[in-house]
Each structure stands twice: as C-alpha cells, then as structure tokens.
C-alpha cells in the first residue's frame, strides 16, 4: 500500500523537522511550502521530503489542494493530509489506514472531540467546533464529530474523482466545510478516528477564531448556493 503524506507549511522551520522525520516512517512525504520566508524549504529537502513551493502565499487551503494534485500525479493508494506545525502526530497514521481498510470508506477524518485530551481545549474551540460540525452534518448527511480537523486520509481514486470539483472551490482558504459539502454531493463516504491534539512546539497559529468562523460560514453559504458539484 503506497501512502503519500502531504503537509502544507508557512514559516514552520521551528516545528517542521520532527514532524517530517516521524512522517517519513509511514510513507512518502510531500511538503507544500506556501511562500515561506524562512528555511522551511531547505529543511524539508534536507529531511528527504518532496517539496512543492508556491511562489507566493496562497493560503492553507490552496496549499492542501496543491499537495493533493502533486500526489495524484503519482501512483499512490492513499493520501494523508496533516498539519506541519506538530499538532498532529504522524504515529496515528496507521489508525487511519486501518480504519479505511476495515470500513472501506473514501475518507477517514481525525476527531479531536473523540480524542482523550479534548476536555482541556479552549472554550471557544469547544463551542465553535461542534456547532460548525453540526451544521455541516445537517448539510451533508454525514455523522461527524469534528469536521474541521486537518488530519485526514483519502483514497487516492476517490480524491481523483472529485478533484476537478475541488479545484473549482470558491473559498479554498477555508477548505474543510466546502470540501465535505462537495464530497457528499459526489457520494463519498466518511468515517472518523479519535486523535490526540498536541501543542505546537513553537510559534502561534495564524488563524484567528472569529475570522476563521466567519470565513467558514461564508464558504458554507457559497458552497450551498453553488450548483457546481
């Protein structure tokens, strides 16, 4: 089973190395650098990852899509998407693969809510995450507990089938919500595995919760109104 592990990074030189080294144990690592100004690209190359470099900063959503496109050009069976900031543990990848093989679903999503350390999460996350997920479940018919988690595994063939539609996304910077709406329209199936969320080793996330929530809501609205895929 050939596994591609795609990570998108923007100025992550402080967090990247251990993630790449750990991820390389489970498959071929593809790093999409989203126009970093630090040594992210050099570090990734030194760690043996295949690197795709955006000439300018395009946002995390497009970086994820670039990773998918690059991986789909090659002969992989599954494509893993995870964060490069060290919050996702590559050691949990086998859990996703095992779930996919056992259930035969097209996508396996990590759930922070089902994970054992979720109670310690900030209140804002504990409020917004289930609310947005409930809304997405309502629109898609899926039964997820955490639709916003960026740790996911896709069957390459299923992803290839929906890629033309994903490429037309209206708000690619807020990928998750719109992606699930498109997936449900394409008839793809989803399962979840519990994951533990680790703290970032260094730096702070660039996503403001309010702005992010607003962006996600906008992308949901656009996806619902859009007739394409």
């Amino acid at each position: 089973m050939k596994l591609a592990i795609t990570l998108s990074a923007y100025n992550e030189e402080k967090n990247l190395k251990p993630v790449l080294e750990e991820a390389a144990k489970y498959g071929e690592v593809i790093l999409v650098d989203d126009g970093s100004s630090d040594r992210t690209v050099q570090l990734a190359r030194d760690c043996g990852a295949k690197v795709v470099v955006h000439p300018i900063n395009l946002g995390q959503g497009l970086a994820v899509l670039t990773g998918f496109k690059f991986a789909l050009k090659q002969d992989f069976d599954m494509i893993v998407e995870m964060d490069a900031d060290g919050q996702h543990d590559p050691a949990e990848i086998p859990l996703f693969v095992e779930k996919m093989n056992r259930t035969g679903v097209d996508i396996v999503v990590g759930s922070r809510i089902l994970g054992s350390n979720y109670q310690g999460a900030p209140w804002a996350r504990r409020f917004f995450l289930p609310s947005l997920t409930r809304l997405i479940n309502l629109l898609t018919g899926y039964r997820m507990t955490d639709s916003m988690c960026g740790f996911r595994v896709f069957k390459a063939d299923s992803l290839r089938r929906v890629m033309p539609v994903l490429d037309q996304m209206l708000e690619p910077q807020y990928l998750a919500a719109e992606m699930f709406i498109r997936f449900s329209r394409a008839g793809l199936t989803v399962a979840e595995v519990p994951i533990r969320l680790k703290d970032r080793a260094s730096g702070v996330s660039t996503k403001g919760l309010f702005r992010y929530g607003l962006g996600v809501s906008r992308s949901i609205l656009k996806a619902v109104l859009s007739k394409k895929g």
């Binding site: 999409v32 295949k50 690197v51 795709v52 470099v53 955006h54 000439p55 395009l58 497009l62 899509l65 670039t66 496109k69 690059f70 050009k73």
Partner: peptide, 8 residues
C-alpha cells in the same frame, strides 16, 4: 499553483 506543480 500551476507554476509550483510544474517546477516540482
């Protein structure tokens, strides 16, 4: 995105 993919 296309430039990045072609270069890679």
């Amino acid at each position: 995105q296309e430039i990045a993919l072609l270069r890679a």
